[in-house]
Nucleic acid binder design. Structure first.
Length: 682
DNA sequence: CTTTCAGACCTTTTT
DNA sequence: GGTCTGAAAG
């Protein structure tokens, strides 16, 4: 039902280097020294035939630190897949291989492909994101850090809730003074952790307007840390911090984990941060068997503390690193590569790469300006219909955009034209208020000390406001109130009848032997009336509850369900999810969510200066450069056809100006690199 | 104490 | 266009 597998059809004819015509092999035997024959394992996969020279080098270098700089479409995934296969063929136990990727889906996909090569053993490989790896490890060793293994993972919204609570509690919200809002506080603290930089410096650099409040913010950051520790909570950053801490403080464990994960591979290394680097460093301390793969030109997550310099500094952290550069592109036709090279050529700072392809022919990319936004949508719809008539499948077409909201108008037009689509990125199912409500209930059952969730579910009740909620939460935090019969009674006294009912309901969810789907259905029965009272559009939301119940049905333990919902939630946005049953769907995606994927035809819409790059990047050179890399990522997704569109005469509220210029990244592209078209109302 | 309502504010990308 | 905040009514 959640069908968002990237249309990854490895076109074998293209990915395989062309082999010169050879006479059929005559040799029927090989002569080898006995010692060599015994030392060299027998490989069934003919690596040299399946990979090009540089890919092969990366695959065969199985020991020691390796850095692979892989330009877009150069077969980075293929290289990782074959390396996993190679290690397994060498007799390495699959459990000893650790494959860290940017999403769990891409790890699964790689392991699936490795399994196609060497059999199902490959499925035993440990694969996932840094966060999910940290989560699993920390659940095991939580006690070493004075955590309980039932700790709850706070997502960004939860962190902001805590921030709000603490800010009020510490009296920083008094009027007349502008103290940073909760999101700002959360992102300042997170930036400080991820960049391993004191909060003072973060404020100095990125939030100079709050320079006067440094002391208070520091104080708040400290109580935030205490609060989480006291209530058995970890946010996304804590997963990484604590993972690093675990390895630093416990040499014997570090040794053991290093032994368990003898071969480490990290994908998308340009989007890792210092903390993640530290985790890798510690894990690989003894054996140094670590290969990282990435492309500095595709670093697009600096807002999360990622720094593309991380990848370039790798050899310094791992002396003796072998550096391998993949330059042959197997994805795009030459005209598209010319275009993307042109986009990148104006980058201020980059490491030279010379992408080339042997794919012949291909049409010039098109740059199309339309009179307004609506015409842009109509143009896209018409193009898609035409492509479909030409036999291009819908899931081979993607429409990419800088920000999620930029696709709203197009979505309306697509629906009118009856074109099915899924949207990736932007506001997600899991982030909708009603889904968060359900999760909060389950979290409380799983971790009764999770006061953030307690607070949330108490506030849903009629007649309960911040005050009452706080009182109940305090009792719970002090251990005086528990989910029991008597608990329900005292809860009823502190609050009102509704609070008592909440406790009664939670009580029925406690038994271990009750299955996850049973729990969820019970909960939904309880929650439905609450939702009706709270949201006018409850009918729309009820569908999501069914969806939620269906997803929960796939899990056996509450623990893994909650962890997945926090770390790897369904990636589609709210819109596409309900009727996502068609097998052929157009892909709409933010550029960030399109990372690592490829399509036959790619549209990049809203390539309008002021939207992409957006006005708020204008102030900083670094940010502007990141926007440029985003354009590079977007355009390198295309295999055969690339169409870039922008509407003109758009009024921008923020600047009060009319935007009418194409994105600066494509404005000056010469005619021989891209055809330019204008669409206007007839 | 809770709920409601009006005005201010700001608008990205995600584990 | 939606969220967030503060102040006044219930």
């Amino acid at each position: 039902m959640i069908n968002n597998q990237p249309p990854d059809t490895p076109s074998t004819d293209l990915t395989k280097p062309e082999q010169p015509e050879q006479a059929p092999a005559r040799k029927t035997f090989v002569l080898r020294r006995k010692a060599d024959a015994e030392a060299t394992p027998h490989f069934r996969i003919r690596y040299a035939d399946e990979l090009n020279a540089t890919q092969l080098a990366a695959v065969e270098q199985t020991e020691g630190p390796v850095l692979v700089i892989a330009g877009a479409g150069t077969g980075k995934t293929r290289t990782l897949v074959y390396r996993v296969a190679r290690l397994i063929e060498m007799g390495i136990k699959p459990e000893q291989i650790l494959l860290l990727t940017f999403t769990r889906k891409s790890a699964q996909e790689m392991l699936r492909r490795a399994a196609a090569l060497v059999g199902s053993r490959a499925e035993q490989v440990n694969g996932g994101t840094f966060h999910s790896f940290a989560n699993l490890t920390l659940r095991k060793y939580a006690q070493l850090l004075n955590y309980q293994s039932t700790f709850t993972i706070l997502d960004q919204g939860d962190c902001e809730d805590v921030m709000n609570l603490l800010r009020a509690r510490m009296g920083f919200d008094t009027k007349g003074r502008r103290f940073p809002r909760k999101q700002t506080l959360a992102s300042m603290i997170s930036a400080s952790i991820n960049r391993m930089t004191p909060i003072r410096e973060i404020i100095e650099e990125d939030y100079p307007q709050y320079r006067r409040d440094v002391e208070e913010i520091e104080k708040l950051a400290r109580s935030y840390q205490e609060y989480k520790r006291m209530h058995n909570l970890m946010d996304y950053d804590d997963l990484l911090v604590n993972m690093a801490l675990l390895l630093q403080k416990h040499p014997e464990l570090r040794e053991r984990l290093g032994e368990t994960h003898r071969y480490i591979m990290v994908d998308e290394y340009q989007d890792t941060n210092k903390l993640q680097h530290e985790v890798v460093r510690l894990l690989a301390e003894r054996h140094q068997n670590v290969m990282v793969v990435g492309d500095d030109s595709q670093s697009i997550y600096s807002f999360r503390g990622a720094n593309f310099r991380n990848i370039m500094d790798f050899p310094r952290g791992f002396p003796g690193t072998t550096v391998i550069t993949l330059e042959e592109n197997y994805r795009s036709v030459q005209p598209i590569l010319n275009f993307t090279n042109e986009v990148l050529s104006h980058a201020i700072e980059k490491y030279e790469k010379h992408l080339y392809t042997r794919r012949p022919g291909g049409a010039l990319p098109m740059v199309v300006s339309t009179a307004d936004e609506h015409l842009q949508s109509e143009f896209i719809v018409q193009q898609i219909l035409e492509l479909r008539e030409q036999g291009v499948e819908l899931n081979e077409i993607a429409v990419l955009f800088r920000s999620s909201f930029l696709s709203f108008d197009l979505e309306i037009e697509l629906t009118k034209a009856n074109i099915p689509y899924v949207k990736m990125g932007g506001f997600k199912f899991i982030e909708t208020a009603h889904v968060k409500d359900l999760i909060a209930h389950l979290r409380v059952v799983h971790n009764p000390r999770d006061v953030v969730s307690w607070n949330r579910i108490l506030l849903l009740l009629e007649g309960v406001g911040p005050r009452t909620a706080q009182r109940v939460v305090d009792e719970i935090a002090d251990g005086r109130l528990e989910i029991t019969r008597q608990g329900a009674e005292s809860a009823r006294k502190i609050g009102n009848a509704a609070v008592g009912e909440l406790f009664d309901m939670l009580l029925t969810l406690l038994p271990e032997k009750m299955s996850v789907p049973e729990k969820v259905d019970q909960l939904i029965r309880y929650y439905k009336p609450i939702m009706r009272g709270k949201y006018d559009d409850y009918i729309k939301r009820e569908k999501d509850l069914e969806m939620f119940s269906e997803i929960a049905g796939r899990y056996r333990s509450l623990n893994s369900f909650l962890a997945d919902m926090a770390l790897e939630p369904p990636t589609e946005s709210v819109t596409g999810i309900e009727d996502g049953k068609e097998d052929e769907q157009l892909i709409l995606s933010t550029i960030h969510s399109a990372k690592g994927l490829e399509w036959n035809t790619v549209f990049v819409i809203w390539a309008l200066d002021g939207r992409f790059p957006s006005t708020w990047a204008a102030g900083s050179l670094d940010q502007m450069e990141e926007e440029r890399r985003l354009m590079y990522v977007a355009t390198t997704r295309a295999k055969d056809r690339l169409i870039i569109t922008y509407p003109i005469n758009i009024f921008d509220r923020e600047s009060g100006m009319v935007l009418s210029k194409p994105s600066r990244f494509i404005a000056d592209i010469p005619e021989e690199i891209a055809e330019k078209w204008v669409v206007s109302q007839e």
